[in-house]
Design a protein around this nucleic acid. Sequence first.
RNA 1: CGGGGCGUGGCGCAGACCGGUAGCGCGCCUGCUUUGGGAGCAGGAGGUCCCCGGUUCGAAUCCGGGCGCCCCGACCA
Length: 487
Amino acid sequence: MAKGKGLTPRAVDFSAWYNEAVQRAELADHAPVRGTMVIRPWGYGIWERMQGALDRMFKDTGHENAYFPLLIPMNFIEREKEHVEGFKPELAVVTHAGGKELEEPLVVRPTSETIIYAMYAKWVQSYRDLPLLINQWANVMRWELRTRPFLRTTEFLWQEGHTAHATREEAVEETLGILALYRRFMEEWVALPVVTGRKSESEKFAGAQETYTCEAMMQDRRALQAGTSHHLGQSFARQFGLTFQNEEGTESYAWNTSWGVTTRLIGAMVMTHGDDRGIVVPPKLAPAQVVIVPISPTDADCSVVVPKAHEVRERLATAGLRARVDDRDHLSPGAKFYEWERKGVPYRIEIGPRDLARGEVVLVPRVREEGGKRKEFLPEKEAVAGLPDRLGALQAALLERAQARRERHTYRGVERWEELVEILNGPGGFVHTGWSGDPAVEARVKEATGGTLRCMPGPDFGSESVPKRCIGGSEPAEVEVLWAKAY
RNA sequence: CGGGGCGUGGCGCAGACCGGUAGCGCGCCUGCUUUGGGAGCAGGAGGUCCCCGGUUCGAAUCCGGGCGCCCCGACCA
């Protein structure tokens, strides 16, 4: 942590800035066990906003919530071959309980495919039981070697959707439907522009047939996988006997999908919108959208100004906004200003005796537009009436700003190997090239730059003209791909 | 799991080379004065100096062995 009062500037050390920004916004704090963290009320409040929005979207598309157990029999995890290979190294296993060694070890879920499809197998007999569309909000544990708050922790919170369908087509439709839902959520709520696309064989989820991803660009131009949606095919159904009788009376295996987003989205929010003064929380996610700081130099002022502040808060609440009064009396106004700016509250209202006399309040945005005024003195009514629009405009501006930044650092139609290497090892960014589909090329890129194939961009993100040659050599390109260094 | 760094009041650090029983800033508590960009003064609380062992009359300091954390690389939402 920087010794002074401010944060390490992003340009000096982005990673140090991130850690300090998270810590000093009181989003999270390190817990005693390595790689674990406490999500503090401010951070959890943001997560609750995310949950609320996503949950409504899931329900609107016919999904229901349920809850499956934390502990999974070891042999469940071991059934699906690729799945177990993917997760074995990072499993936490319970070997003792009730003072005795267990006959069969229990795995702390790293994800719940196995236990969920085992249960689905009991519930599904007929095509009439399908589709089965269930989501759960849960914690999972993956024993990561290198951790960072929100981006990678040993335990994290997420939602995992698990569906079963009668046909492959339906499952694919679900997978892509959720991908689109995620994109909409990220853009509209997190103000996070993402590139959606399909993962290559080497990057896809362990056990999936196809993995689709939302890739976002952080301010340091590295990619962050913000959400994934998997078409699982029938491999889990086969391992867990998830079968149904179709209309003709024949028994067949169900088709599954799974999809998830995690508290990592909070990290994405921080690294996308934050500035050198702290984090910036998009209005739709902010637990408090407006903080009101009463300025009351004397006790006499205090007895008028503080009630006034609460009155304004009431008016804002009536207008549908989340507002708080910071009437702590042991902090100076300046100290409060800095604190709420670090926490990313979109707007601040100051009310002092001078404003009161004029029937005004002072309105201060967390993010100033180019050449925008720092403080505005407005009649109280006007300020209250105008805030919903201002918050809406900020929400839109954050997305636009992030989108513009991503476009500035996106390179399309790159054909020469040297150019790819120079960009990834130099300024960094998203690089679109052609690809033959040969995994050896992925390995070479990783070797040369540390960058990886983030995805094969979907319809909205492909380039107008795609290189004919694979970036790795002279073979023809099969697809367009997106390369970047990733978190 | 390899390379580097660090463990000293809540936080950030000094003290260590040269052994003598712990100090600074911030924060915290009490009181008074304050309040429009991180308040001032006065008083006060708070430390098994990561752990175990060794050397020594005496160890935060020297030696040996552990443990933990952070940063950088390989694996991962």
